[in-house]
Computed example of a mutant assay.
Amino acid sequence: MVQKLDFETFFTKLDESTETIQSDCNLTYLESLIHTGKLLFLGDLNQPLSEIAHKKVKKAISDIHLDDLSKEEIRKTFQLAILKGMKEATQPNHAMTPDAVAMFMAYLVNKLTGKTDRFRILDPAVGPGNLLTAILNHSNKQIESFGVEPDETLLQLAYVNANLQQHKTELFHQDSLTDILVDPVDIVVADLPIGYYPNQENASRYRLKAEEGMSYTHHLMIEQSLNYTKESGFLLFLIPNFMFESTQAKQLHHYIKEHAHIYSLLQLPKSMFKEEKHAKSIFILRKKGAGVKGPNQALLAELPSFSNKHALSEMVTSINNWFDAYIN
């Protein structure tokens, strides 16, 4: 009798194959993980291996039957492997939305879409695809999904991630602040990249460009996201807590007030971050549109630790009550 594949065994086999490719081809762990992922859904390895390594990889993946696993189990296992690879990586842009946050944002997207049976969603900073696929996995609606990512390694990981979970996601390898060939969507979600945007010529196209010096990438991404959101559509961002304290904050505040309604600011537990300066919040906006008014009272809260189930349950009840009062 063939034993059903479980989460732990899947990770062990995935890791074994990836480490074998890494060692044999002198690649990074993340590059090797991409090859393992492609092998799993394409059934072919386009990376030349020694005979011994090829046999080891084939043996490792022969025990993997993806039909034994749910999409969430695949996502979480792949996420674990990506996190392992990111520990060895030196690129500062290689980061991933924490699982608990991705799950919470999926819950918020479900609340915002309400009784809608289908919608279009864009993640303009898709990274390895963890946030976007978490949202797709926790919805029973028909969703057209799109992701944009300039980093080739992260985009390849998102591609493998989506394919292993059988999501038809359209991915674009480009700078998210250049023109995207996507019609406006109902919802934008993004874990905003933080820092200065190096392309000053392109930044000059934006209202939120800096009056002097370099512009903030996260400010420009908010403007770009609003450009690609339908009227009355929602935007959910992970933002740094210091965003409205920066030198360009006044300009950002005026722009948001002109184009959107602020619905919510949910501060993530500080215990999630090693340093307070890295702390983040979930920021929810609604693009202005005919007949749409902002809520009489925005949802402002400091979220409890995600490991404190009782406090989190009480917070979710409060959030549900707010949605009933101001959204539904």
Rank of each mutant, 00 (worst) to 15 (best):
L164E: 00
Q165P: 02
T169G: 12
E170G: 00
D175C: 11
T178M: 07
T178Y: 07
D179A: 04
L181M: 08
V182D: 02
P184S: 03
V185K: 05
I187L: 13
I187T: 04
A190C: 09
L192W: 12
Y196I: 00
Y196D: 07
Y197D: 00
N199Q: 13
N202T: 10
R205T: 11
R205L: 13
Y206A: 02
K209E: 02
A210H: 05
E211K: 15
E211D: 15
M214S: 14
L220Q: 07
L220T: 09
N227C: 14
Y228A: 03
Y228R: 11
T229S: 11
K230H: 04
K230L: 08
E231D: 15
G233Y: 03
F234N: 11
L235M: 15
I239Q: 12
I239C: 14
N241M: 10
F242Q: 12
S246M: 08
Q248Y: 10
Q248W: 04
H254L: 09
I256W: 08
I256H: 06
E258R: 13
S264E: 12
L265I: 15
L265F: 15
Q267N: 14
P269W: 14
F273A: 02
K274S: 14
A279W: 07
I284K: 03
R286Q: 13
G289K: 00
P295S: 01
N296P: 03
